[in-house]
Write a protein that binds this DNA or RNA. Structure first.
Length: 566
RNA sequence: GCGCUCGUAGCUCAGCUGGAUAGAGUGUUGGCCUCCGAAGCCAAAGGUCAUGAGUUCGAAUCUCAUCGGGCGCACCA
């Protein structure tokens, strides 16, 4: 319907170009769903946009545009309003035809082929496997999974990926922490992982000799020493004394934590196509050859014994080290290789979802992409802000270091997956959010998840009570205020879905569903559905069936269930 | 200090690729169940869109400055 209006406007503008009123037809003609019913169903600001080009007042131009519009049975009337908006009032039949479309296409309704034949790589969460996911990761998980769903709904082929940082020092600290819990010493490094999950992993270790790995190590911070050096010494001792057994502990630690993360995400409705190992980049030699490639193209220089990548040539603030003076590759070096590898897989679009605290890394990663001859515009980095938890009106204190954080699993158990998924995407991703645990748990009208689910359940309940023949339907009977509003809302769904997806903004869909549910609840209170007149009854049931379908489809994309009863 | 980001109703937030009287929820106040699920509906009150300039026919939206909050500025990952 909107497409037809678009074509009609384009035609009209083209004829005005022939008449010499306009010099050219713009390629971005905007048509919006009117926010107020007195302004019709659709509105265009095109006359305001082009008034300068036409050298006449917007209202005058609007009249010319309307006069040149071809006749259409879909349009009941047009009006010029305000400073020069053109308002389109569509015929009732044109508006209500959406109901049939929704019923026909059922679960598929709303989908489109906008992104057909385009492949997207979406990397998200990618938390270090040094402990269970916490509520901060949960937001990235919910956001990423929903963005993937939205993009798929409009035709993109999306591959979800989790980058596993299984190489490097943090993993050694993890393994050493596990070993220390295994030998049950009362000494523990300041920098070790202190969480209770370390004990659980340590319990699975058996048959490995218990050495005193504190022999000869430098002092820890609490004893006036350097905590970094202290733990590095412990790791070194651990490796030497344990020999092959070190790898056994190491693998046990990472496998244990990673499988926990996988289970957690799967239960949260978040699925991955691939878990990409950082270590695999080292093993395959790609990390090394990537640095060599940068060297060959003259982007690397040596200083103080380290190799620096001249990212400032590509807009970064400072140059960055890729190989340390001890010969170790930095995390950044792996990241360069990883992104190169991503580009080589031939995706049309590569999206990374990062915690907002990593925003400082965007410039250097994009620099590396450009330096290696790829198009950095293909790489989009979306940022997700932290979530603050509130319970009983008080902010829940969290600190990763001390191990006192609320895990994603605890959150899911406390508020349920539906509420967690919905609350996480209810706010714009780059916006700080306050997550009110009490509200998410409440089964009252304060809770938007239940408000929407309730609308769905209510419709199911009504439909269940219907008896009799349902063949006689006349959608033109749906013309009271509540019905008109509801039909108008249904007509918006496809556009909402598309813009929500293209802008990576799930909250737009979440807000829409709340509005749709609200319009339904109003309708429910103002009109009776199961009336004597069979044709009217069937028509109303068709309408609310369509509402039920759209709620179900929309919630599905958000990863939230649409129960028949609650 | 430099960079990024945010500042909209008591509270939590939409609206930001410039457009018509700035919107929801919650909270407050007052109404609606002999009727399909009251986990609902209706209504009222509530605003210097942080502040000040600028661009424009038109600014919550774009530009600059100031104030205030968050984050980032490692040969860590």
């Amino acid at each position: 319907m909107k497409e037809q209006l678009h074509a009609l406007l384009q035609q009209s503008l083209a004829s005005l170009v022939v008449d010499g009123v306009l010099s050219e037809v713009p390629d971005n003609i905007r048509i919006d769903h009117s926010k107020d019913k007195t302004q019709g169903d659709f509105a265009s600001n095109i006359a305001l946009v082009l008034s300068k080009q036409a050298k006449c007042a917007p209202k005058v131009l609007a009249e010319k545009i309307v006069a040149n519009l071809a006749d259409s049975t879909e349009i009941e009337k047009t009006e010029i309003a305000g400073p020069g908006f053109i308002n389109f009032f569509m015929s009732q039949g044109s508006n209500s035809s959406v109901i049939d479309q929704i019923i026909d296409q059922s679960n598929e309704y709303g989908m489109s082929d906008f992104g057909v034949n385009q492949r997207v790589l979406l990397e998200f969460v990618s938390a270090n496997p040094t402990g269970p996911l916490h509520v901060g990761h949960g937001r990235g998980a919910a956001y990423g999974a929903t963005v993937a769903n939205l993009l798929r709904a409009i035709g993109f082929e999306v591959d979800n990926e989790y980058y596993v940082n299984d190489a490097g020092r943090q993993m050694d600290i993890l393994a050493t922490s596990v070993y220390l819990r295994y030998i049950e010493t009362d000494k523990f490094p300041d920098n070790g992982y202190k969480g209770s999950y370390i004990f659980d992993i340590a319990k699975q270790v058996n048959g490995i000799e218990k050495f005193d790995i504190f022999d000869g190590v430098s002092a820890d911070e609490k004893d006036g020493g350097d905590k970094e050096k202290h733990i590095d010494d412990l790791i070194a001792n651990c490796k030497v004394l344990l020999g092959d057994d070190y790898k056994t502990i190491f693998d046990l630690a990472i496998d244990g934590i990673l499988s926990g993360i996988k289970t957690d995400l799967a239960e949260f409705g978040v699925d991955y196509k691939q878990w990409f190992s950082e270590q695999s980049l080292v093993d395959s030699g790609l990390s090394k050859t990537t640095v060599e490639a940068l060297q060959a193209s003259g982007h690397i220089y040596e200083q103080d014994g380290a190799l620096w990548f001249k990212t400032t040539d590509f807009g970064d603030d400072l140059d960055r080290v890729v190989v340390r003076d001890n010969g170790m590759h930095t995390y950044f070096a792996s990241d360069i290789a990883y992104h190169l590898e991503k580009f080589e897989r031939g995706y049309d679009k590569i999206i990374n979802i990062w915690g907002a605290d990593h925003h400082g890394y965007i410039a250097r990663v994009k620099a590396s992409v450009t330096a290696l001859g790829n198009d950095a515009d293909k790489l989009e980095i979306l940022l997700v802000q932290f979530a603050n938890l509130y319970r009983g009106g008080e902010k829940v204190a969290m600190s990763t270091r001390s191990g006192s954080f609320v895990t994603l699993e605890e959150l899911r158990n406390e508020v349920g997956n539906d509420a967690a998924r919905f609350f996480y995407v209810l706010r714009k991703s780059e916006q700080h959010m306050d997550f009110d645990l009490d509200l998410a748990k409440s089964k009252t009208n304060e809770n938007p998840v239940f408000y929407i689910q309730y609308a769905h359940a209510r419709i199911c309940s009504v439909l269940k009570q219907n008896t009799g023949d349902s063949s006689a339907v006349d959608l033109t009977l749906l013309n009271n205020e509540a019905e008109t509003a509801l039909i108008k809302q249904l007509n918006r769904y496809k556009d909402v879905l598309q813009s929500s997806a293209l802008n990576y903004e799930p909250h737009v869909l979440a807000y829409y569903l709340r509005e749709l549910a609200g319009d339904f609840h109003s309708y429910y209170n103002s009109s009776e559905f199961l009336v004597e007149d069979a044709t009217l009854k069937n028509s109303r049931l068709q309408l609310i069936s369509a509402v039920k379908q759209v709620i179900s489809n929309g919630l599905g994309l958000l990863g939230v269930s649409a129960p028949d009863s609650m």
